[in-house]
Amino acid sequence: MAVATHGTASNYLQRAPSPSGLADVIDLILDKGLVIDAYVRIAVIGIELITIDARIVIASVDTYLRFAEAVNRLDLTQTEAAGLAELRGDDGDGKAKGMVEGVKDAFSRDDEKEREPAKKD
C-alpha cells in the first residue's frame, strides 16, 4: 500500500490510493456505506467508544494548558525558512498529525481485546 508523495508537490501532500492504516479504514467503513437487513452485524464497540472519547477530551482545561505550553515554547524570533527546513523531515505522521488522529491510532492498535463478540441470534 504505497503512500507516495504526489507529483512535484512538497512532502505536505500525502497521496494514497487506499487507506493505509487501521484509523483510515475505521474512518471509512464503520459508519459509512450501504446498510441492509442482516442476519447479524458484527460489533466493534470498543473502537467506536474510543473515537467518541477522543472527541470529548478536546475542549478541556488540559487542552487549553497544552496549547498555552505550546505557545509559550514558540521561538518567535525564528524565521519561517528555518521553521520549514526543520519540519520538512516530518512525513506527516508525526507531530504534524492531528491530535485526535494520533489518539485514534494509538488506541486502535491495542483495542482488539476490548471488542465484543457479535450477537449470534
Binding site: 467503513i29 459508519d31 459509512k32 456505506g33 450501504l34 441492509i36 452485524r41
Partner: peptide, 14 residues
C-alpha cells in the same frame, strides 16, 4: 457499492 463493515447473512443462498 460498498457495504458498511460487519454485515453477515446466513449463507450464500440468503
Amino acid at each position: 457499492l460498498p457495504l458498511r463493515f460487519g454485515i453477515v447473512l446466513r449463507d450464500e443462498d440468503a
